[in-house]
């Protein structure tokens, strides 16, 4: 129901954002955020127990909000936002789960077991990745953004090259280094 007017609205927001309107960016992030959540909820509905990668989330958010044939310039801007929103959602959820677990939810663990989902510490790892990525952003914004676009936004190396207007070789090199850096940071 909301799709039709939303399409138009998203395009408008992206245009405003390109012209430097930070409010539009905020609105866009909020929109993407809501959408990614909705998609996650829906995927559960369609196939309970199934998983959906962050890439799928961002891609589906893109298609839902922009349509599959949106202009590349719109897609490029959108991907920045989608990747950030997806990251934020995943990390927020992980933090929330960690918090509720610390709250001593024995029942929750039981429920997890009942539904056949092994409890794991992926949540803690996700939070650490987020922290490390934030550090990298401070010192090396371009490489941090590449990580975000690839891991949370689901972009291919070619798309990243176009989005950041660098060569594909640069993307490969930067990604290799950033990945190694993150991994080293996590193992520290």
């Amino acid at each position: 129901m909301a799709e039709a007017p939303a399409d138009h609205e998203v395009t408008r927001l992206i245009a405003a954002w390109r012209e430097g309107d930070e409010g539009a960016r905020e609105a866009l992030v909020e929109r993407v955020y809501a959408n990614v959540r909705a998609i996650a909820a829906q995927s559960l509905r369609q196939m309970p127990g199934a998983t959906l990668s962050a890439t799928d989330l961002a891609h589906e958010a893109l298609i839902r909000l922009l349509g599959s044939d949106a202009a590349w310039s719109d897609r490029r801007h959108f991907f920045h936002v989608a990747a950030q929103a997806t990251r934020q959602i995943l990390v927020d959820a992980a933090r929330q789960r960690l918090a509720s677990k610390r709250g001593g939810g024995a029942e929750k663990v039981e429920l997890d077991a009942a539904l056949g989902v092994a409890a794991n510490d992926g949540d803690a790892e996700l939070v650490r990745i987020d922290d490390a990525l934030r550090d990298l952003q401070q010192s090396d914004a371009r490489r941090a953004q590449m990580i975000e676009l690839v891991y949370f936004g689901g972009l291919s190396r070619i798309e990243v090259a176009q989005a950041l207007q660098v060569s594909e070789g640069t993307v490969d090199r930067d990604l290799r280094l950033a990945r190694a850096w993150l991994r080293a940071a996590l193992e520290a």
């Binding site: 996650a40 199934a50 959906l52 962050a54 995943l90 990390v91 996700l126 990745i129």
Partner: peptide, 10 residues
């Protein structure tokens, strides 16, 4: 880690 996080989101 991201995939696990996304899966648990649902």
């Amino acid at each position: 880690a991201i995939a696990r996080g996304a899966a648990r989101l649902h």
